[in-house]
Design a protein around this nucleic acid. Sequence first.
DNA 1: CAGACATATTAGATAGTGCTAATATGATTG
DNA 2: CAATCATATTAGCACTATCTAATATGTCTG
Lengths: 106, 106
Amino acid sequence: MTDNSFDLKIKLIHGFSNKVRLQILECIKEKEKTVSQIVDELKGNQSNISQHLACLKGCGIIVGRNEGKYCYYSLRNERIRDLLEMFDTVLEDVHSDVSCCANHID
Amino acid sequence: MTDNSFDLKIKLIHGFSNKVRLQILECIKEKEKTVSQIVDELKGNQSNISQHLACLKGCGIIVGRNEGKYCYYSLRNERIRDLLEMFDTVLEDVHSDVSCCANHID
DNA sequence: CAGACATATTAGATAGTGCTAATATGATTG
DNA sequence: CAATCATATTAGCACTATCTAATATGTCTG
């Protein structure tokens, strides 16, 4: 694996590693939604959600589709959904052991 | 999914979302290694590597096995390996699109 | 048991992330 | 075409993560 694709891998994973982003992904997992639908459902801040959507898009995790003044976001493809489900599977294994690790390092 | 297990999920994913940690995982993917072997192979700082190992352990991604003065680390189980491989698969899809997104948000 | 070796922990500096509030852009509608 | 609505962008602050250097802990070996 080249340095560059290694960095891309980190960027991809980083996309998943934030609560709001993960909530967005859960929110649009089954069907595409507009930004304001997402903002409503998550009871979030429009600016904040919009930034996270830009990040997810930049990371290749989601795609946006413009329709008039609306923008619909959805998972990029089935593999992203698989990955999300894989996280849950792995989590079941790990469950009891993750409880420490208060931040990245400690 | 409960709030708590959602937080655990983020913690788990966070474990993967750092260059050094991902390098450690690649390094021990095939077989367990001691801390000093890892430090040598990655040409890293002992303290730094040790901290990242503690994090990976805390996140349930790896396990440590003490043998005298040595400590051997390895992937926690096969599913972690599967997940690492899944990242590569997804990355192939995404490859060209991840290039923007300089940091999490932008 | 003193010194060497392997690893872990702590502290502090620096860098990177994520939030809110304000503002900009671009499309629609009366 | 002015007002409104949906979304994006920017700026600045607060918080968190990461690094290095120093030090502590625990184990082995002569």
